[in-house]
Structure formats: C-alpha cells, structure tokens
Design a protein around this nucleic acid. Sequence first.
DNA 1: GCATATTTGTCCGTATGTATA
DNA 2: CTATACATACGGACAAATATG
Lengths: 237, 237
Amino acid sequence: MGTTSGAELGGLADDRPLLGRTSTAERVADILRSRIAEGYFQPGERLSEETIGKALAVSRNTLREAFRLLTHERLLVHELNRGVFVRVLAVEDVEDIYRTRRLIECAVVRGLDGPPFPVDGLEKAVSRGERAAREGIWKGVSTANIHFHRELVALAGSARTDELMRGVLAELRLVFHVVDDPRGLHEPYLVRNRQLLESLRSGDREGTERMLAKYLDDSRERLVEVYAGAVADDTAP
Amino acid sequence: MGTTSGAELGGLADDRPLLGRTSTAERVADILRSRIAEGYFQPGERLSEETIGKALAVSRNTLREAFRLLTHERLLVHELNRGVFVRVLAVEDVEDIYRTRRLIECAVVRGLDGPPFPVDGLEKAVSRGERAAREGIWKGVSTANIHFHRELVALAGSARTDELMRGVLAELRLVFHVVDDPRGLHEPYLVRNRQLLESLRSGDREGTERMLAKYLDDSRERLVEVYAGAVADDTAP
DNA sequence: GCATATTTGTCCGTATGTATA
DNA sequence: CTATACATACGGACAAATATG
C-alpha cells in the first residue's frame, strides 16, 4: 500500500511530524495555495481529501484544517457533504472585486501623505512586468501587475487593508486562469502602470486618482466581457 | 464524570449530529463568536480544548475546526503547542483599524450614487442607539453604533467590503471589552451619528465626508488614549 | 535545573449521514 | 430504489511541547 509520493504536488518539507516553525496544516495550505495560484488546480476542480492526503502524506484531519484556511480565503468553496472545490467566480464576483479595488485603490492615492511618495516598490513591480513582457512570459506580467497594485495599496500603511487586497487579488487570479489570454489581458496595462508611477512621482494625487479610476473601469469592463464568454462556454459547450 | 452540560455556553441547537444546514464546526464557531463579542470570554483568556469541547459536547477535532475559523477572523490567536487565546489587540492594531475605517468609510461616502441615498438602515441604527441610551443600556449603544457604521459601508454595495468591515468592527469590540467605560466612549457619538445621517439626507457628500473624517479621528484619538492606559494597567498592575 | 502533569499536535478507525450513479 | 462513494463527526491513541511543582 505504498502511499503515493507527494512529488507531484511538491510535497512537504520533511518526514518529521513537527519541527518546522509553522503547523503542518499551514504548510499544506501554503502548498495548495501555490498550486491554485499557478493554475495546477483549475477552478471548478474538486480536491479529494483522500487523494491529496495520500499525496502529501498527511491525515484527513490535518488536510481538512488546511482546506478550512483556504476556504476562508475564498480560494476554495466548501459544499456540505460534497467536499471542497477550487472556486469558480461568478461574473458578479468579478464586478464586486473591481468595486472593492476602485474604492480602496483610489482612496489610497487620495489619502497619500506627501509628496514625495515612496514609490520604490512600484518601480520594481513595473520594471519586472516590462522585463517579463520582453521575455514573453505573460504569466509573469500578470504576477507583476498584481504586485504593482499590492504595492500601491501598501502605501496606505495598513496591515488590514493590505490583507484585504492580497485576498481580492488572489481571487482575481482565478479569473485569469479561466480566460487565459494572458497577453491580451495584461499587456495593455504595462504602459498604464508606468504612467501611474510617473504621475505619482510628479506628485499629482488628483490626476493619478482619476487615471487610476479610468484604468480600473477599463480593466473591469474588458475582463467581465471576456470572462462572461469563457464561463458561458464552460457551462454550455 | 458527567460531562459538563453546555448550558453555560449556550449549547448547540440539538442532539442530532447533522440536520441543520451548517456544519457543527460553524455552529460552534457561531456560539464562541457571540461569547467573545459579548465579553463572556475576555481578551487574553485561554480557550481550553477539553473544557469547551465537553461543555458543547463536540469532539476535539470539530472544536479545532471552529477555532481555526475564529483565528482567521482574528478573534482568536493560535500559539503553537500552547493553544488558542482570545485576542488582545495592541495599540497599533487599534490605530490600524482606524486607518482602515477612515480609508474605507470616507471612500464609501465619496463614491455614493445619488442623491438621494438609501439611508433607512442608518436611520434604524441611529434610533436603536438613542433608545438604548435612554434605557441606560450602554452595551446596546455600542452595538447600535457598530451597526451604524456597517450600514454606512453597505451603501457601497460590495460584499467583500462589507465583510472586511464586519471583521474590523468585530475586532474593535475586543478593545471595548478591555476599557469598559461604555458610556463615556459611546454616548458622544449618538448625536454625531444623527448629524451624519441628516447630512446624508441633505445630499451633501463632501460635507458628510469631512464630518466623518473628523469623527473617526476624534474617536481614534480618544480610544487609543483610554486603551493605552488600560493595557498598561494590565501588563504592570 | 529536574521530574512530572497537563495540554496540544497529529493520526487512525469507525459509524453515520448525504449525494449521486 | 438500491448501491456506492464520500464527507462528517466522534473517540481513542501516542508523540511532542509546555507548564507546574
């Protein structure tokens, strides 16, 4: 009865039951979170307790704790007596995500102290995105774009707001995995990210806020359009 | 060794293991959340797996799932191999909570569609607070005040923003339980809540936003002052 | 500093309820 | 309707860490 090796899923750090600083459930959650973020587990896919438990060599109780964590992060949905599934966002969820982003990101820009503003993190994210684009790694462009907006929100200096944005942007990744035309989705925002950065550098809060609002409205509109099509294809092929 | 009856904690709905629509762990979490919100479990108190498990007649595994849920809501903190404790907020947490509130609540007002604005929920919360004050139930004033701000944020129409605010205001309750001068803390805001409501009724977004910003700054300042004293008393008596 | 008791961390086996073929 | 597969929840067990004397 050789337990399936966890190699395919990345596996846990070691055999020892407890020596890492974090609990087993959290380490399992970290692994699963990565696999979801990178699309190894597709939205809609069911995550079997037994299969994954064997693959990672953890008990069902431990695995269930990990599932709970990810469910609370809205990456998994839990259906009573049916199990957990990778979340499939509704179009309304996408709209709510953008409603939240617009509210918060614009408020952050509006409430900035300064100028000057500490834009180092933003600069780094922008250039990473540009480099990824030159190399044709569109998934990297997507990741850099997400980092850009996280760095933007980080300017507000609030841990709770940061965490909200982290979660919201992680959800957004689920959408990207379904539509999966990374280039068409993300390339247009490379220049717009740099524009936002330069606008902040110039110290123009109001202009940046307006620019950002339009940016998010455009992004939402386009994404909803594409996503609605993709979801429709999926439910009625 | 009769298992301690769950009467003291409120107990579960019934004996049956599964007939309600929610899982046992969630129902347990609901009970514990209420007890924390009302101050039955004080900040800093340790929640024993065995004691509470017996009192609510659930297994340790189930109880641990409930703990996970509440830990993720930041109402409990989990210390490895030591157990879970009711969260004790640092002064910096209070400041971060207010930073978040100011960012979001003001952004909500700023972004309102209208006028007119649908202020029915706000009206209800305000009058409930006024009634509680007339009856001298200061804990009720606190609850109504929290409802007022939740209703305010609800005007943005975003589920994710609502949930963030729900969590943030639940954390804030932990602070109130430590300082516990409910009247001094909440009474001043009865009139200010009504002023905000009337300002919204008049359709003056900008004026309301300014008023709200000052309101939150005042509230933060006073609460931090009182809370810093209470925490200092607690650590060095 | 040491030995002991308590509590948590993890896993397993099993009985029961629920959904689906 | 029955059968199967799976999640739910329980109780017990032992290891590991912490708290107590």
